[in-house]
Amino acid sequence: MIEFVRNLRLWFAPEQVRQEGSTPDYRFSLANERTFLAWLRTALALIGGGFAVDQFLPDLRWAWRVGLALALLGAGVLCSLRAVNHWVRCEQAMRRGEDLPASRFPAVLSLVVAVVAVAMVVVVLVGWAG
């Protein structure tokens, strides 16, 4: 958590990132940037999914609809914040010549998406029955 706050400052201060270590091969930086963009797309898809749940499942009960939509939106926010944080950490690690940071986040996100998908299936089946 403290490291996250320290990284938070780096998000806005490019000079600070450039101060330490040596500039890596530009191709590694571009690969890191593409990974960041892929995570950002995932986040945007989750946010779009939140809107879609609200718009295209109008027959659901209010609590379910809002709950699912907020879960997807929350996952989207977490995913995008984590995207920039991970990008900064990878950039720093490459400058210092360290190993890239390991992360539990992909596993957590997969589990959240799986749970939301199962919830959707249950909700749709129950909605048809009832």
């Binding site: 780096l10 998000w11 806005f12 201060a13 490019p14 990132v17 500039t23 530009y26 930086s29 571009l30 890191n32 940037e33 960041f36 950002l40 986040a43 945007l44 946010i47 939140g50 809107f51 609200d54 939509a69 907020l70 939106l73 929350g74 989207g76 926010v77 995008s80 914040l81 995207a83 920039v84 990008w87 900064v88 950039e91």
Partner: peptide, 24 residues
């Protein structure tokens, strides 16, 4: 090309976050 500036990465992410807040 030079590496992406953290400022721009943060700006892009904040747009996504703000959109999620609008959605909420």
């Amino acid at each position: 090309p030079a590496a992406l500036a953290p400022r721009h990465a943060t700006a892009a992410v904040l747009c996504a976050v703000a959109m999620a807040v609008c959605a909420a």
